[in-house]
Design a protein around this nucleic acid. Structure first.
Lengths: 163, 163
DNA sequence: TACCGATTGCACAGACTGATCAGGAGATCA
DNA sequence: TGATCTCCTGATCAGTCTGTGCAATCGGTA
């Protein structure tokens, strides 16, 4: 699962990632100035992080809630033994409202994150999900408020040695 | 919660977001060429999306699993009525391994996503979480495999009108 | 028909990128 | 101590992009 070898970050990597997260549009040159290192160093560090997979990408982070999908829910699925996980994953991949899915331990087989335009719309999506033989039943939890929005930076600082 | 008014995307927005997601480093000019529109249009669209909050940012998307945190888990917390959600959120915010947290409906009060270096490390993090008076107990689900990695693009295409 | 927002095409100066190279600093090993 | 390696530095070069502003155009609307 873990791609190749784990990437060990250092303090400079952590500062670099933090700075880029806060001001992604400043460019490599300005970044190097802020960090007090040579431009080539910044480019080399970035290339390395991307090459090793530590950075998945720099794409725009779209906020589902702002483009009309204000409801977030976590749905636990119980899948039929006769169907493989792969088949279920394929089914789920075809539903845009399914933002991610994991196989899990415990009471349930798959946990997925689902967004919808409204509670009624959520019902529609869930119906679509369970309208597949491989899925026996679904248990839905609705997210009421976002206490902590997704973040990785604190973890990056923890992971960095000598910081 | 939803910042201002929902942003209604159109086909061009969807194509723009898709292209930027696939090749974030191509720059505005190249983007305009690929989309067949004027450079100013691309800039205006992007500015608008950012201003309205549809795009949260362009920061590097760090992959926790690659920097040493290979274990992902979802932990449901039951919190004491005497403490507010806010207090619990503050507590959780101080723990880097807590990547996100939501208040939820159903059997439990808070659902959070937690990563750790190993199962033993996960135990340490959970102990840290429950070592707080406001939290009565924690129920942990471990993610075994990532069936669908987090994605938003299919949703963007769905949200766009006239696509 | 007049108005309005959005898009276009163009222009300019300034700044950045990608690539490359020689030299230096620090760590490792025999 | 000396050889070797890796990483960082500082600099150069041509080519390209960005930020900005403006006048004209287009499509839909009052």
């Amino acid at each position: 699962m873990t791609a190749s070898q784990d990437v060990q970050l250092d303090a400079l990597d952590a500062r670099l990632l933090t700075l880029l997260d806060e001001e992604p549009r400043i460019g490599v040159l300005e970044t190097s100035r802020r960090l007090g290192v040579a431009r080539g160093t910044v480019q080399a560090r970035l290339d390395k992080l991307v090459a090793r997979g530590a950075i998945r990408g720099f794409g725009p982070q779209v906020e589902p809630a702002v483009i009309g999908f204000g409801i977030t829910s976590f749905v636990t699925l119980e899948i039929s033994q006769r169907y493989g996980h792969r088949a279920v994953a394929d089914h789920l991949e075809g539903i845009p409202e399914v933002l991610e899915a994991h196989t899990i331990t415990g009471a349930g087989d798959v946990l997925c994150r689902i967004v919808a335009r409204s509670n009624a719309d959520l019902q529609r999506v869930i119906d679509q999900i369970v309208g597949y033989d491989g899925i026996v039943r679904a248990s839905t939890i609705i997210a009421l408020a976002e206490l902590i929005p997704y973040r990785v930076l604190p973890l990056v600082r923890t992971a960095a040695i000598g910081s």
